[in-house]
Design a protein around this nucleic acid. Sequence first.
RNA 1: GCCCCCAUCGUCUAGGGGCCCAGGACGGGGCCCUCUCAAGGCCCAAACUGGGGUUCGAAUCCCCAUGGGGGCACCA
Length: 503
Amino acid sequence: MVVNYLGENHLTLKPVRTRFAPSPTGRMHIGNARSALFPFLLARRIGGTFILRIEDTDQKRYDPNAEQGLIDGLHWLGIQYDEGPDIGGPYAPYRQTERRKLYFEHAWKLVESDHAFPCFCTSERLEKVRQEQMKNKQNPRYDGLCRNLTHEEARQRVDAGEKYVIRFKMPKEGSITAIDLLRGNITTENSALDDSVILKSDGLPTYHLAAMLDDHLMEITHVIRGSEWLPSLPLHTHIIRASGWDEPVFVHLSVFLKPSGKGKMSKRDKAEMMKDGYSIFVTDMKDLGYTPEGVLNWIALMGWGVAEDDVMSLEQMVQRFSIDHLTASPAAINFQKLDHFNATHIRLMTNEDLSARIKPYFTGAGLEVQNEALLKITPLIRERLVTLDDCLAFASFFFKENVEPNPEELIAKGLDAQQSAEIARKTYEILASLPDLSHQTAEPPMRAYVESSGLNINQVFGLLRVAVTGQKVSPPLFESMEIIGKAKCLERVQKAIGLLEKM
RNA sequence: GCCCCCAUCGUCUAGGGGCCCAGGACGGGGCCCUCUCAAGGCCCAAACUGGGGUUCGAAUCCCCAUGGGGGCACCA
C-alpha cells in the first residue's frame, strides 16, 4: 500500500521519519507532549521512524536540566524514540550545538549561491532603525544596508575579524506558496517577508536554518510542530527551495488555550492551576496522581478528532491515528476531561498493575504496606479513584494500627450518643459471636439486626463504618472489615463504644 | 499598526452538497441501582457566529463582516 500523505501532487515513496525537536529551555508541558505524541503516532502507525532532536542553539535560554526532563517526560508517557541524543542513531549527533559546523557551512553555501548575505550591522543600529520605522508606522524590517555588499567586500570584512551574522536574502518581488497539510496552500507576498538572520554572530544558527537543515539531513518526511511556526513557514519554504531540497509535509498543530478559552496560559494561570491540583507540566502530573494513559488520552483528543469510543490506550491510538484528522483550530484545555480519562484508565487496569502503582503513595505517606492486603484492597477502591493519590483518602485506614474516629461522626443520624452506644454494643455482640468476619458471614446477621431493631441501615452501618474505618466515606463496609480482620474490628468497635459512652 | 491562521452544544470534537430539524465524549440535570462515596444503566437540556452569494439543495463551496488565536528578535 502506498500512502499518500502529501496530497495528490506530492506522492512520497520515502520511508516516513518524524521528529520531536524541543529546545531545552524549561519544563516539559502538555503542549510539548502533544508535539511529541502526534509525530510518534504517525511513525508507529505506518512503520516509520520517530526521533528526538535537541534544539539547543540558544545559549542564553539554555537550561542544563531541561534535556533530561524532556527525556524523562517522554519515557514516563511511553513515547519511545528510535534515535536521539542519549541513544544515538545513524544521523547523529542529535544535539544541534554538536552540529554547528554543518549550519555554518550551509549558511555560507547560501551566501555563495546568492540566497543569503553577511550582515555587519550592530544590534544598536538595528534597534535605531526599528524605532524609526515604528515611528513612521512602518513594519519593523531589516533595511537592507548590507544586502548589496559585493562578495569580495563582505569576505574582506569577515576575514578582518569583523562581527557578522548571515541573513537570508529574501526576494523583493513575487510571492511564495507554502503548504500546510491541514490548511492547504498559504500564499505570501515576498515583500511582506524579512531578511531574517539564519546564522548568529556566535556562529550558531537560528531555528530557521538549523531546523530546516536538520530535517533535510535527517530525512524527515513530516514536520509536525506548533502553530507558532506558521508565520515563518514561508521563510522556511524559501530556505528549503533555495537549498534545493525536497519539502517535507508540514503540519501545524493548534495552540492550547487556557480553560476559559481566552488566550494562552500565563505564568499566573499556571500557579493558579497548581492550587486546584492541576498542572500543565508533565512532571507535576505524575506527582498529582495522574497516569500516563490518562494524560496521553487527554492531550491526544485536543486537536485530533475521533468520531466515537474515545477512550484509547497508546496502542489503540497508534492503530487509529490519522494525520488528516488533526484539527487546525485552537483548543481550550479542560481538566475535568483529564480527570475523566484518568479515572477511566485506572478502572481499566489489572489489579496487579494498579496495586503496584498506588503502593508508592502509601509508602510515601509513611505507611507500611503488605502486598497481599493491598491486592485485596485495590478492587475495592479502584472505581473510586480519580487520581492515584486518592488511594490515600480511601484506604489509609487499612494500614494504620489505630483509627481516630471523630466522636460526633459516630452518632447515628437522628439518634443521640447513648442510643448510638447501644447500637455499637449490640453490633459488637453480633460480630464477636461470629467465627470470622468475612463479608458473607458478617453481613446477614447485621442486616437481620437492622431489620429487627427498626433502625435504618444507614444508622447502623454508618456508625460501624466510622468506628472501623475512622471515616464517613469508605470502600464497602463488610469487604473492608474482612480485610482488617476480626480482632482489629472488634477492638475498634470497642473503642467507639467507649467514645460514645463518654459523650 | 502590519501579516498569517481559525470559526459546530459551556468544553473537546464527528461532519468534506442531499444520509443532519446535526452524532459522540466531558461537564450539567433527572431517574434507577445502592451500607457511605463512587462506578454502572436509562433519559433530558445544550451548537452549525452574522450577512451575502453558488446550487434544485449548504454546517459543508466562495466573498465580506464579526469574533478568537498566532506571529512580526542575533528566542525557539
